[in-house]
Amino acid sequence: MFSKIMVPVDLAHAARLDKALQMASDLAHLYKAHVIFVGVTSPQPGPVAHNPQEFSAKLDAFAAEQAGKRGISASGHAVVSHDPAVDLEAALLKACSDTGAGLIVMASHIPGVSNYLFHAHGGRVAEMAPVSVAVVRGD
């Protein structure tokens, strides 16, 4: 049903992603799909890496680690955004079409009052993506 599953990851907070990673891995086994971990970075240095190249290398390492740990086929796909705080969804949607993923599995926080003013990234992606989206709530 799905040959490629896209999983947006925030490498600075990878520990919070466990449920989404597990679900993506389960689905990958079920559909024999390839998992693409997508990370969005800015051209400026951030907590994860000094520059986009280093970010890309770390994302690859993350993908390799997940592939080994969960027994799946996986790769990394880094995207540079000028303003990731605002353009995150646009960057993810572009990555979805660039990679040809058929399903997005995305972690999201439990909605709160602030979501009336500022939309949640997961919700926004689910609203706009041309493919199926599984929004996985954290604990």
Binding site: I36, P52, A67, A78, A95, T99
Partner: peptide, 18 residues
């Protein structure tokens, strides 16, 4: 195992960095 989809979004190599 990383494959050919890696680095698609990143511009060409940027040369030496200090």
């Amino acid at each position: 195992m990383a494959d050919e989809t890696t680095n698609q979004g990143i511009p060409a190599p940027e040369g030496e960095a200090d």
